[in-house]
């Protein structure tokens, strides 16, 4: 990534210089148009970030202050207590625990199954491989997943999985997009010689996967894992569909339920504190792995 941007910017500076030399003073002055670009980007960034600002400042207000007219942009006396109340009075410890279990179990399965399949598709030759891989790609492009919620729900009740975490874990263990990304990563990132050498040592196929492929595909696994974790953490539809009792709710589901109480009964301070707590883990993950994640996604999009 760093290399890519460096190459890009150094090339562009030369381009820029030629442009400057050529276009003596056509139309809008250069500095003005540049200022305009910064202004547009600044406005967009503000619009993207503003909801978080409202969220955080709202989580530190009481009800009266939240609906003051004119609105308070920041809390006069921050009420940190809201962050305690959600755990003492609103059971958020359980919801967060549920979210961690569901997201962790789903992500772990995805990492295992998609890297295993990605390895086989990338490095092995066997009859029908290409057709099977094309099938995987087609299902990745199919939009119909969510429309089948009703038969999915009926299937879950047939299996006795309603109000359990299984429907949010097992069906999602081998997403085609993750298999595709892992295949690309392994095909380009792990030399055939390493795998051949391990096979010649008499290591079995699964042993080779464990000892050679898995450790070497960690950067790819990070990208796939975070994408998956964030997606399931923020899932609402399927949780709403199958998790029925309060003690089984994920954190995302819990804030939705909390917000649907009648307007008068909703305590917005704790609700907003709850939203802050739910929203934070994916954002923290994103900030930690930002560089790797962006370049991974960029690479995927260029090839895809």
């Amino acid at each position: 990534m760093a290399v890519q941007t460096d190459r890009l910017s150094s090339q562009s500076t030369t381009v820029d210089a030629t442009r400057q030399a050529r276009s003596g003073g056509v139309g809008v002055p250069r500095s003005l148009s540049r200022a305009l670009v910064y202004l547009v980007l600044l406005i967009v960034v503000l619009l993207m970030v503003a909801p978080f600002y409202f969220l955080v400042s709202g989580s530190l207000m009481d009800r009266g202050e939240m609906f003051k007219i004119p609105p308070h942009l920041y809390p006069a006396n921050p009420i940190w207590d809201n962050f305690r109340t959600i755990f003492t009075d609103y059971n958020f410890a359980t919801y967060l625990k549920n979210s961690v279990i569901v997201s962790g179990a789903q992500t772990a399965g995805v990492l295992f199954f998609s890297s295993l399949a990605g390895f086989v598709f990338a490095k092995r030759r066997f009859p029908g491989r290409d057709w099977l891989f094309i099938f995987v790609l087609i299902t990745a492009a199919m939009p119909s997943g969510q429309t089948t919620i009703i038969p999915f729900y009926l299937l879950m009740s047939k299996l006795g999985w309603i109000n359990t975490f299984w429907p949010l874990i097992i069906p999602w263990w081998a997403p085609p997009l993750s298999i595709f990304l892992m295949r690309q990563y392994i095909a380009n990132g792990i030399p055939d010689e390493l795998i051949d050498a391990s096979r010649l040592d008499g290591t079995g196929l699964f042993g080779t996967y464990l000892r050679i492929v898995l450790p070497l595909s960690i950067p790819g696994l990070v990208v796939v894992g975070i994408m998956q974790f964030v997606a399931i953490w923020n899932d609402f539809l399927y949780g709403l569909l199958v998790l029925k009792s309060d003690d089984m709710r994920t954190a995302t589901l819990a804030i939705a339920v909390l917000s649907q109480r009648s307007q008068a009964a909703t305590l917005y301070g704790p609700l907003f504190a709850g939203i802050v707590v739910v929203t934070l883990p994916p954002i923290i993950l994103y900030f930690i792995f930002q560089r790797r994640l962006t370049s991974g996604l960029l690479a995927g999009s260029i090839r895809g």
Binding site: V49, P51, F52, L55, N234, I255, I275, Y286
Partner: peptide, 17 residues
Amino acid sequence: TLIFIPTVSSLVGIGIV
């Protein structure tokens, strides 16, 4: 980075906002 943040944040949470 800032433009990408909404992509990883909870639509339900921001929907309530």
